[in-house]
Nucleic acid binder design. Sequence first.
DNA 1: GAAAATCCAGGAATCGTTTCCAGAATTGAA
DNA 2: TTCAATTCTGGAAACGATTCCTGGATTTTC
Lengths: 345, 345
Amino acid sequence: MSSDSKLSGDKATVHKVTVHEVAKYAGVSISSVSRALSDHPHVSNALRTRVRSAALSLGYRPDFLAHSLRSGTTYSVGFVVGTISNPIMADISASLGNVLADHDYAMMLLSSQNKPELETTYLRFLAHRQVSGLVISTAADGATQAAELIHGLGIPTVMLDRQRPPGSHVSAVQSDHRSGMQAAVAHLLSRGHRRIALIGGQEFFDPARERLAGFHTAMQEADIAIDPELVRCMGMSKTVGYTETRSLLASSNPPTALIAGGNLILAGVLQALQELKVAVGRDLALVGCDDTELTRLYSPPITVIARDLALMGETTAWLLLETIANRAGRTVVLPTQLIIRDSSS
Amino acid sequence: MSSDSKLSGDKATVHKVTVHEVAKYAGVSISSVSRALSDHPHVSNALRTRVRSAALSLGYRPDFLAHSLRSGTTYSVGFVVGTISNPIMADISASLGNVLADHDYAMMLLSSQNKPELETTYLRFLAHRQVSGLVISTAADGATQAAELIHGLGIPTVMLDRQRPPGSHVSAVQSDHRSGMQAAVAHLLSRGHRRIALIGGQEFFDPARERLAGFHTAMQEADIAIDPELVRCMGMSKTVGYTETRSLLASSNPPTALIAGGNLILAGVLQALQELKVAVGRDLALVGCDDTELTRLYSPPITVIARDLALMGETTAWLLLETIANRAGRTVVLPTQLIIRDSSS
DNA sequence: GAAAATCCAGGAATCGTTTCCAGAATTGAA
DNA sequence: TTCAATTCTGGAAACGATTCCTGGATTTTC
């Protein structure tokens, strides 16, 4: 079955087996072949088995493109991501792609580089290819623009780590950043810290807003006034992490603990701390978001607000398949978990 | 042009504009429309402009699936990768995908989890979808198996960081691991190290073999005998890095410098060193392979044999497009560069 | 000025399926 | 036994493009 035809590799004259040949071989009509193979009702057992065996012995597989054209379903989904170089997205993408492949879906990956205009370009690109579904973690600023486009396209979609926009064909997978942040703050408070700084994304960005809310709640619950100087919600980037860390530590009354509200921010924070010769864990307690190779292997290992990224990818896949089938969008919120390591002791 | 039809999102009754409508609108035949739009010769200027403007004002775009079916080209390429969670692959994938998208190609990403059987499954999966091209970094053990399959499929392919197997439709992008390793060894020797250990992959794995060769060459050139106890080519995994590091450092005559021949290995090495309380850079000089966030941010920053991963992705894309066009496979070797940091001073 | 060459546009076949429609065969009920 | 209901099957029309083939309109050439 595998290497029946000359595997020349240069001529590649495999003579595709078509439904026509199967029909002739089995002595039936084309339409009967199609029906027999796709489990239609009203097909006699005799005919079904005859066609089945004919197809098998000829090695027939329906042409993918012809099938797509006729049926209108491409069995492929588009994944628009800020950048796959972000280890979070890489982990999610891995499990997402695997579950999809298990269901015979192909995943087309496109990196928008967090540029809203590239995002819409790619969404149209994917729409033109008639993908059966979309997964997207929209850029921080182009959120409404993308949401409108997705709404207009009418393609079943899962928003990744974003709020669910209106539209019955769009779902969302979110993380419980708020609780995670509350746990992190509570942990630092229990270690005696009172001056806790937070570097995060801007408030219009869903995950950043949730984290900030959790921060406020936890501090209020402990009855501790927040020094506004210590809260720096400027953007989800390495640059922000770097700049704000230097600024915070240069102050006359620096924080004793720092929470980096995003893995990109953490990278900037670490670089700044290294340059300033600040010993992580001794001079400054540090908590990051999302568990990566870096946080696990760093010396000392870094406490993080983690989430199960593989689970997140799988959930996204399942939710997308569900939304494709039902066209009834919904939101799924996954838990976060505080992993305490040496950086905050 | 953008939002002309009701963007209900729930009904999505966009009434596709077909070549038929354009023909009727322009008052010409269907075949003329197709020719006028695809720049065929033998089409009068008058007709061309008429059709063009008709298509424009109707907002016509050729149906992707119909085009694919008829022409046989899908404008999509498959990328089979061990795991996208490997930051190297993530970086390569990002630029690869972007260049491909610039040329209207979609990239289908599949993670084989380094299992040869999944690899072949995915290759067949992609072949069934009639991808125009393939990019693959085969698993260490299933190399020949995959090479044979690729040869048989006859699909233009670029092997990533692997040797080019025979077949006029297959190319390869490689890195000059050998020179990189020579430079690393020379660097350590110049720092006074004589007992240099190497943990790497098995010899049947192309990059590992090249690195080992570079290691031998550099030591021979310096006229230093290699202690076979210090060379551990056991596999490209975190586990190997961890186990071999512990074994090396438990020896009665431990190395003063260690080269981790792969980024996964490095992860294991770092974990072992952390557990053993060995200070990187002071107690043991350390050199890794491939520059990642981890090596840049680690404290102290880690010396690495680096390569331009973005360039590698772009080169892969260009080479694939070339191979699709020419069907004349060739090999491109990209340089490596030693980046000296505090871990080896 | 006529024959040959060339340019242009339309009709129809094709790519390989799925599905509608209608007719034949079978079954069931009266 | 007959008529209606049902089950099954084949022919042909989609899906939406590209391309071959052919004939008419131009142009070239002697």
